[in-house]
Amino acid sequence: MCFEAGPIAHAFRESGRAEIKTRAEDEQAFVLHWLLTFALEHGAEWRKHAGDVLEAVIAEAKAAVAARKEALATGGARGES
């Protein structure tokens, strides 16, 4: 479960869409709850809908990480111009 839930929780955390504690139990609880809402709302089509949202979350997470790296590289994280 950790190996499946961890990367999803990390993407949500990095994207800024969710504040999730870093404990494996908290990550698993978040992901299970998130996926169950899709199953309840969309039935057999849950995987497609969750996948669509997850693609956007991953893209946002990658952009956020890249922005932080850029800020660190240019000194922006320390308030320098």
Rank of each mutant, 00 (worst) to 15 (best):
A61D: 01
I8C: 04
C2N: 15
V65Y: 05
C2D: 14
V57S: 07
G75T: 01
E45T: 06
H42I: 00
E14T: 08
D52N: 11
E45I: 03
A9S: 06
R17K: 13
L54K: 10
Q28R: 11
A59H: 08
K62N: 13
E14N: 14
L72A: 15
L32Y: 14
K48E: 07
E80L: 13
A18M: 09
D26L: 02
M1G: 14
G76V: 04
L40A: 11
E80K: 11
D26E: 12
A9M: 04
K48A: 09
T22N: 09
H42Q: 06
A50F: 04
W34N: 01
E45W: 04
G79P: 02
D26A: 08
E14S: 12
R23C: 01
Q28Y: 07
P7Q: 00
E19K: 09
E25Q: 08
A11G: 05
G6F: 10
I8K: 09
E27L: 02
H33W: 13
A77Q: 10
I8T: 08
E60L: 11
E41H: 08
I58L: 12
A24Y: 06
P7E: 00
Q28L: 10
A5T: 07
M1S: 15
E60I: 05
V57I: 11
F30R: 00
G6L: 09
G16H: 05
V65F: 07
G51Q: 03
L54S: 04
K21I: 01
I58Q: 15
E4A: 15
E19N: 08
F30P: 02
T22D: 08
I58K: 15
Q28S: 10
G79Y: 04
A29L: 07
L40H: 13
L72T: 13
A11R: 07
H49M: 10
A66R: 11
E4V: 15
A44D: 03
P7C: 02
A11Y: 05
L54E: 06
V31H: 00
A61W: 04
A39V: 15
